[in-house]
């Protein structure tokens, strides 16, 4: 670590004005990267949760009909479903529970009793059992007028596709951040090479290898990147906490909170080291190539 972050004894890169703002730029990049990672992992978790919840989970909807005895219809449907092979359970969802499900969208004070709310039955399919859902739907509609089977799959598929698209976008943002960081570092290093050309020439003439000079640039720029990354990461974590707090305080939010799980936390903690390594590799490449053009 000492050699990784050692000072540039001869080149005095620490005194360069041109690189003074590099940590600020790196901090901004790491802030964006950390948020992208947060989004990436949160979406991954959310998609997993949606799939887990909705796979093998069906809903039977019995349309609102003021003239019909809805409780009787529900009982008939539950009986039919419970007797169907492959169905683990069929549970009628009570009025109050239905109202609780609607509350996030309509508000707690909405006059739900006055609305034509359909009656719902939660159906759990036995794991690994292939129930013919189309046949079941037809059978149900014949036995209980107004009943229909909602298998959630089309909605889930759309949500999963959306989730994956946003994940791809987050990954693309990460890539873009990496590319921009590399370009900024390249410009800063080239400026440094020009500013210190005379000392570099002296070092060469007294027998310095290119890698001796490159190491001074590598150490200095890695240190700048690492030190810039830390505040960027801290601010991003604070922003994530604030976001989660705001999401939690919303009554009818469809937004998933930012949840990272261990893999996401490790990815965030690795960010400063990865940016330092990326900088080190970039600087070495640029310096070695530039020095190779000298005698």
């Amino acid at each position: 670590m000492i050699s990784l972050f050692g000072k540039s004894a001869e080149l005095q890169l620490e005194k360069d004005v041109s690189t003074r703002y590099l940590p600020v730029v790196i901090a901004a990049m790491i802030f964006l990267a950390a948020l992208a990672i947060g989004g990436l992992f949160s979406l991954h978790n959310a998609i997993g949760n949606w799939s887990e919840t909705l796979t093998g989970n069906l809903t039977v909807e019995i349309a609102y009909d003021p003239a019909a005895d809805l409780d009787k219809k529900v009982a008939e449907a539950v009986k039919l479903l419970s007797e169907t092979p492959g169905v683990t359970s069929a549970r009628a969802i009570g009025k109050e529970e239905t109202h609780a499900l609607l509350a996030p969208f309509l508000g707690k004070n909405a006059a739900l009793d006055e609305l034509p709310v359909p009656r719902l039955i939660e159906v759990i399919i036995e794991e690994g059992n292939a129930v013919d859902l189309r046949a079941l739907n037809e059978k149900l509609a014949g036995a209980v007028p107004g009943a229909s089977l909602d298998i959630h799959r089309p909605w889930l598929n759309k949500m999963v596709t959306l989730g994956h698209s946003v994940q791809l976008l987050a990954a693309a943002i990460m890539l873009l951040i990496g590319v921009v960081t590399v370009i900024i570092v390249i410009f800063a290093v080239r400026t440094g090479l020009v500013m210190h050309a005379e000392v570099i020439q002296v070092l060469h003439l007294i027998g310095a290898h290119d890698k001796y000079i490159a190491e001074q640039f590598q150490n200095y720029f890695s240190r700048l990147s690492f030190l810039g990354a830390l505040p960027g990461l801290v601010v991003a974590v604070i922003v994530m906490f604030i976001f989660n707090f705001l999401v939690g305080s919303l009554e009818s939010s469809m937004l998933p909170p930012l949840t990272l799980e261990p893999a996401g936390i490790v990815a965030l903690l690795l960010l400063p080291f990865l940016i330092a390594l990326l900088t080190r590799f970039t600087v070495r490449l640029v310096v070695m190539r530039s020095l190779a053009r000298m005698m």
Partner: peptide, 30 residues
């Protein structure tokens, strides 16, 4: 080249010393 250059000592008219290093560190550099 570095090994060859270590066999050659160069004294410049404009000295080309590193101003932030002491006389001892300048001389010790090679």
């Amino acid at each position: 080249l570095p090994a060859m250059r270590r066999k050659i000592g160069v004294v410049y008219q404009e000295f080309r010393l590193l101003d932030h290093l002491s006389a001892m560190d300048n001389v010790a550099l090679p």
